[in-house]
């Protein structure tokens, strides 16, 4: 089974790059607050970093053999 962190990471990497790229090309401030904050660039960078970390962890997890099932009885 695919390591779920991989598709999640790739998804956010793509969306993050899209937003950050759009923020660079079309640097719109957040409307109605009168402040110089490029929301797309800043949040796009956050998403890109998150996506990158998930992709790396997912890629490493994919190469690792699956953990054995823990068949212990319930622990209270």
């Amino acid at each position: 089974m695919i390591d779920l962190r991989l598709p999640i990471g790739i998804f956010f990497l793509l969306v993050g790059l899209l937003m950050a790229g759009y923020g660079v090309v079309s640097p719109n401030d957040i409307p109605h607050i009168g402040m110089k904050i490029n929301g797309n660039l800043d949040w796009g960078i956050v998403l890109t970093i998150f996506g990158l970390l998930m992709t790396i962890f997912g890629w490493r997890g994919q190469r690792r053999p699956p953990e054995p099932k823990n068949e212990q009885p319930p622990v209270h």
Partner: peptide, 11 residues
């Protein structure tokens, strides 16, 4: 709709 610019609005 009020505070998200295009891009963030799509998200």
């Amino acid at each position: 709709g009020t505070y998200y610019p295009a891009g963030l609005l799509g998200l």
